[in-house]
């Protein structure tokens, strides 16, 4: 029997008196591969952070199935991490073992070999002893992805994982994500690239301040919620109307 890995009930998150997302509900079943799409400012990253437990909703609830509570991994956008941390790459990747090693557990040779393999998977062989500060933006984001591999989580929340990658790297990482999908992990991925969504992500969740639609990616395109010529501008007008409505509620 499949569980509902993540359940959202009327989730509202507010930054500085303005709703970033409003009354978002939905179920992410175990083993699904879902893309979260929507225009800029739609609250995609916020929704992901709410699912990861990084921001607290002021109303509503995010429920993670108890089987998975300690097995959630979150891939942030590079901007939110200290890129100039004085730390070698290998050490940064090994922070992915925090879930198993914790504070006292030893990082043994086998784990280090695993970390080196994860680095190779993302195309960073031989980078182990480089300092984080020396890496380019794309390389740093790949280090974060290698850490994600080591976390070996059942639920993966990825925020724009391909934003700073070229085609070859993206293809490589997509393969890893598809492998995870085959292994039955639950993957939720914020993406703006409709081509990638259409090709690789069976499920979509269209967000514009609130949930505009969710279900099979194919249906989302059928309903014109996702569309190559729409440019998502119409959805964006949707957000503004919604905000005005909400504003009137408070008056």
């Amino acid at each position: 029997m499949t569980h509902n890995a993540i359940t959202l009930e009327d989730v509202c998150v507010r930054y500085a008196q303005r709703d970033a997302i409003h009354d978002v509900s939905g179920i992410f079943a175990e083993g699904t591969l879902t893309a979260i799409a929507g225009p800029n400012g739609a609250g995609k990253s916020t929704l992901l952070k709410a699912m990861a437990g990084i921001v607290k909703p002021y109303r509503g609830r995010v429920t993670i199935d108890p089987c998975f509570t300690n097995s959630v991994a979150y891939l942030p956008q590079a901007a939110s991490v200290r890129r100039d941390m004085p730390m070698p790459v290998l050490q940064a990747v090994c922070t992915g073992f925090w879930g198993v090693a914790g504070e006292r557990g030893c990082i043994d040779a086998a784990m280090k070999a695993k970390a080196a393999m994860a680095l190779a998977d993302v195309g960073l062989e031989g980078y182990e002893n480089r300092q984080l500060g020396e890496l380019s933006g794309g390389e740093f984001q790949r280090v974060m992805f290698a850490r994600l591999i080591l976390q070996d989580a059942r639920i993966l929340l990825l925020d724009e994982p391909f934003a700073s990658f070229d085609g070859a790297t993206t293809a490589k990482l997509i393969q890893i994500i598809l492998r995870w999908h085959k292994e039955g992990r639950t993957i939720i991925c914020v993406l703006h690239d409709l081509l990638l969504i259409r090709k690789y992500f069976p499920e979509s969740f269209v967000l514009a301040g609130k949930c505009m639609g969710r279900g099979h990616t194919h249906d989302m395109f059928e309903q014109k919620l996702l569309s190559y010529d729409l440019d998502m501008a119409e959805l964006h007008t949707g957000i503004d109307n919604h905000r005005q409505l909400h504003h009137h509620d408070h008056l």
């Binding site: 300690n70 991994a73 942030p76 925090w98």
Partner: peptide, 10 residues
Amino acid sequence: FDPDFMQAAG
């Protein structure tokens, strides 16, 4: 290094 990581890792 990454405060959000700790939050999400549980």
